[in-house]
Nucleic acid binder design. Sequence first.
DNA 1: TATGAATGAGCATTCATTCAT
DNA 2: TATGAATGAATGCTCATTCAT
Lengths: 224, 224, 224, 224
Amino acid sequence: MKKKDLRLERKKHRLEENKMFILQAAETVFAQKGYSLATMDDIALEAQFSKATLYRYYKSKREVFFEVILNSFEEVRKKTAKIKLKKITAEEKIRELIFYISTYYHKKKNMARILYMERSVMRNILNIDIKKHLSHSTQHPQIPNEFKENMEEIFNIICEIIKEGIESGEFRKVDVRDAAFIFGALLRGFHFRGPLRGREYRIKESTDLLLNFFLYGIKKKGKA
Amino acid sequence: MKKKDLRLERKKHRLEENKMFILQAAETVFAQKGYSLATMDDIALEAQFSKATLYRYYKSKREVFFEVILNSFEEVRKKTAKIKLKKITAEEKIRELIFYISTYYHKKKNMARILYMERSVMRNILNIDIKKHLSHSTQHPQIPNEFKENMEEIFNIICEIIKEGIESGEFRKVDVRDAAFIFGALLRGFHFRGPLRGREYRIKESTDLLLNFFLYGIKKKGKA
Amino acid sequence: MKKKDLRLERKKHRLEENKMFILQAAETVFAQKGYSLATMDDIALEAQFSKATLYRYYKSKREVFFEVILNSFEEVRKKTAKIKLKKITAEEKIRELIFYISTYYHKKKNMARILYMERSVMRNILNIDIKKHLSHSTQHPQIPNEFKENMEEIFNIICEIIKEGIESGEFRKVDVRDAAFIFGALLRGFHFRGPLRGREYRIKESTDLLLNFFLYGIKKKGKA
Amino acid sequence: MKKKDLRLERKKHRLEENKMFILQAAETVFAQKGYSLATMDDIALEAQFSKATLYRYYKSKREVFFEVILNSFEEVRKKTAKIKLKKITAEEKIRELIFYISTYYHKKKNMARILYMERSVMRNILNIDIKKHLSHSTQHPQIPNEFKENMEEIFNIICEIIKEGIESGEFRKVDVRDAAFIFGALLRGFHFRGPLRGREYRIKESTDLLLNFFLYGIKKKGKA
DNA sequence: TATGAATGAGCATTCATTCAT
DNA sequence: TATGAATGAATGCTCATTCAT
C-alpha cells in the first residue's frame, strides 16, 4: 500500500513538474513572440517535449497562455501580500513594492506587456477559441475569473497600504482607490513603454525615480 | 480642360477617401484583434471592399498596419505642438495635454494599446516582413523611422513644456527627461489598463486626477 | 532491442514509402499540368494525403518538383552508365540507349517534356523561390547543381560511347560532342513532339527508325 | 460616303495594328515567363495598353496565347511554302529550311519551347479555361483546329521536299513521312534543349551540323 | 473607345489539434 | 504515457476578368 502511495506521489510530482516545465517554456516563447506568433511547436521545442505531449497537460494553446499569465499573477500577489505585512512605514512598503515589481518586470520583460494586452484582444482570443470548438463539450469559462480575482486582490492590497499611509499621516488624504490606480498606472506605463526607448533605467534608479514622482509630483512646494 | 481637371481632382479625391476609409476600417479591426489576429478579410469586410481591393491601396497587411499607426502619431504630434505654442502657463499646458491625450485614447480606445504591444512582437512583425520582401525593389524601410521620429518629437515637446515650467518657477527642478518620461508612463499606464477595469473615469475626472498626482504626488506636504 | 530496431526500421521504411508515393503522385500531376498549373491540392488529392501532410515530407512545391526531376535523371543516368559497360559494339549500345530512352519517355510520358520546359521558366521558378526563401536558413542551393551534374554525366557517357565507335571504326570521324548533342536532340525532338501527332510509333519501330537515321542520314550512299 | 469609308478603313487599320502590337508584347512576355507565370498585367505593361484594353481585343489570356502561337506557325508555314517553290535541289531546300528555322528559333528563342509544351498541358489550359467559364456562352473550341492545320501543312511541305529529293535520286528511298518527322524532331530537339547548355552554336554552324547529320548520319560509309 | 478600379476564385503555406501506435 | 504523423481550417496575397465612366 505504502509503495503504491509513494509511486502515485512520485507520479503526481512528476506530472506537476512537467506542467511547470512546459509553463516555463511557454512563458519564454510567449514573451518573445506574443500570443499569436508563438506556435505550439515553438513551445514544444523549448520545453523539449513533443507537441502532442503538451496536449496531455493542457487542452489548448489558449489554456497554456492563461496558465502562464495566472502563474505570473499569483507570484506577484503573494509577494505583494508579504510586503503588506512587514513592519515598516507605508512609504517603505511602497518603495519595496516598486522595487519588487520593477525587478519582476525586468526579469519577465515582455511577459508583462502581454499581460496588458488589450481587453478586447483577450476577449478575442477567448471568443475565437470558443467559437472554434463550439461543438466540443469542454470549455474553460472559469479561467478569466481566477484571473480577475488575482488582479483585484493585488489592487486591494495596494489600496490597504496607501490607506495605512494616510492613517499614519504619511500621505495626503487622497482617494485610496484613485491613488492605487495611479500607482498601478505609473508602474505599468513605466515598464510597458512600447517601441519607444528612452534611456535604459537601472532598477535602483527607476525605483527612486518612480517613488519620487509618486510621492511628490513635479509641483514646486509651497506653491500649491 | 477645366472639366478634365475636375474629374481628375474628383478621382484623386475618391482615391484618398478610399485609402482613409480602409485605414479607418483597419484601425477598428486592429484595435479589436491586434495585429496577428486581424485578417485582411476582417479589414475588407469592415471596409466593405473586396480583399483584393485592399491590395490596390496597400501592398501588405504590414503596410496597412504601419499606416494606421503613423496616422495616429501624426495627429497626436500636431496637437501636442499646437498646445506647446499657446500663451498659457506650463501647468495649464500639461492639463491640456492630459485632456487631449485622454480624449484621444478614449476615442481611439484600443488602438493606443496596440501601439504599446510587445516591442518584440513589433520587431518580429518588422523582421518577418522585411525578410519576406527582401527581394522586392520597393521596400518601406522608412516607415519605422518616420514612426520613431514622430514619437521622439512628441517626447521632446513634452520635455520643453516641462522645462518652461521649471524656468518659470512652477515646477521643481526635476530632470526634464525623467519627468517627461514619467508623464508619458502615467498617461500610458492609466489608459492602457489591461483586462483590469477599476471604475470608469470620465475624461474630465481623469484629467483632474492625473494632473493632481502628476503635480503633487501623494506625499503630505511639509513632511518631505 | 531487436524489436525496437524493427519498429524503427519499419517506420523509416514507411516514411520512405510515403515520400516515394507523394513523388509518384507529383510526377503524374506535374506531367499533366506542368509546374505552374499543378497545385499542391492536385498532388495531395492524387497522393491521397492531406495537403498539409505533403509539407511534412517536402518543404515546398518547388522542392517536390525538383525531387521529381532529380529522380528521373538519376534513373536515366544509372541505366546509361550500365549500357556503356556492356560488352557489345558501339552501334548496339546506341541502339540499346535509344530503346531504353524511348521506353522511358513512353512510360513517363509527359514528364520528359516538363524537363525541357522553358529554360526561362525554370530560371523563373528558381529565382522566385530562392528569393522567397532567402531569409530562411535551410536552403537547397545544391538541387540545381545535382541536377546539372546528372545531365552532364549522361551527356558524357554518350560521348564516350560514340568515341568508342569511332575508335573501333564503326562510326565516321565526327566531332564527338556534336554527335552526342545531335543524338540527344534527335531523341528529345522525337519524343517531345508538341501538340502535333503524326502516327504513333511503337517503341520497337521508333528505335529502328531513329537508329537508322542517326546512323545513315537520308543521303543516298556513294553520292557524298 | 468616301470620307466615311476612309475613316472606317483607318479605324480598322488601327485596330489591326493594335492587335498586332499586343500580340508582339504577349509573345515577348510568354517567351520570357511561359504561359502560367505571364500575367495580363505583364502583357499590358509591355504593350503599353491598359489591362482592360487587352480584353477589348482578346477575350482571354488563353486567346492571346493561342493567337501568339498561331501567328508563329503562319509565319513558318509561309516561308516553308516559299522555299519549296524555289528552283534548287532538294538538298539545298533542306539546307535553307534548316537555316530558316534555326534563325527563327534563334529570334523567337523561348517561344519555340512554349510551342512544344506538352499536349496535355495545352489541353489543360484549354480545359481549365473552359471549365472556368462554363456558364458563359462564348467559347473558342475552334482555335486548336486552326492550330493543327497549320502544323500539318508545314509537315506536308517538308514531306514533299523530301519526296522530290528521293525522286531526283538525291536521297535514299526512305519513308517520306518518317523522314519528315525525323527532320522535325532533329530541329526541334536541337533548338529546344532544356536547361542543359552545351556549347552555343552559331546559326551557320548549326545549319551545317544539322544538315550533315541529317544527310549522312554517323555511320562510316561502306560499312552498312 | 480606353481605362482605372473592383473582385471572385485560387494558391502556397502554416498551425492548432487529433489520431494511432 | 509519449509521440510522430496527419489534417482541417485558415491566411496573406495574386490574378484573370468585369464594371463604370
